[in-house]
Design a binder for these strands. Structure first.
Lengths: 134, 134
DNA sequence: ATGAATGCAAAAACTTTGCATGACG
DNA sequence: CGTCATGCAAAGTTTTTGCATTCAT
């Protein structure tokens, strides 16, 4: 079971809820899920995990670097499994679909802009809201 | 009173709460304020406006294009007076200070990236989290 | 006068926390 | 076995909504 090693590697005790949540994030059709999404998916799968535990575990996973938390517009946070490689997001405003992309030029420009203002870039958040070409 | 015309121009009835909130956004030391910030500032100024009204009015102002709503990390939304010219934000993670910037190259790249994926860029959200150069 | 805006309080949505029970190493 | 994790329910935050009253035109 790959998940157990993932958990041990980051120093988290291997418990059933943690394993189930990790598997759910890995196998779900949608890569970006809210805590509620994960909770409902687990319920549908017959797994009995409390919503509070989902929140706690996702927060721990974030701290451990296993998942990333995004605050897209709309009040609630969504989580996605980290895949090591950084990427940004594009949201199709018509369908809600989330598209991931990477652009080295933009990454570089961001570091340069921060530097121009006398700062080091720690993190960034870029979301493009798009619509199919007319 | 300039504020009254601003309101009439966007088709909003000129009421005391709306005028006060607009003035507060215009005169406040901090350009980016949460609904709670605006509410407290009004209370401190001796103005008696309900928090629910602040939320309602800010939402109307946003719909009218008078203000912009940002969902920076941290749960609550912040609002700023629109100044016509688009700009992005840089947040000093040590101090919480918000710096505004514009970079034509980044704007252009974003449109190109959307186009490469077959989309038109409708809007975007870019926040750099930075720290003073070490 | 009349329809819209406000204030209050209640509710809603999302997330966190306290505490007794149960599971991991 | 001791400690940490879980579940439940209660509480916290932020934002929205219902409704009677007040205000703008």
């Amino acid at each position: 079971m790959v998940e157990n090693n993932e958990l041990r590697k980051v120093g988290l005790k291997v418990t059933l809820p943690r394993v189930k949540i990790l598997q759910m994030l890995d196998s779900a059709e949608q890569r970006h899920m809210s805590a509620e999404d994960v909770y409902k998916a687990l319920m549908d799968a017959g797994e009995d995990v409390g919503l509070a535990t989902v929140y706690r575990v996702l927060t721990q996973f974030e701290a451990a670097g296993l998942v990333e938390r995004h605050n897209f517009d709309g009040g609630h946070a969504v989580f996605e499994l980290s895949d090591g490689a950084h990427h940004d997001h594009m949201i199709n405003v018509d369908s809600g679909e989330v598209i991931e992309f990477i652009d080295p030029q933009i990454e570089k420009l961001q570091r340069e802009i921060a530097a121009q203002h006398g700062y080091d870039l720690v993190d960034h958040n870029l979301v493009l809201y798009v619509r199919p070409k007319s």
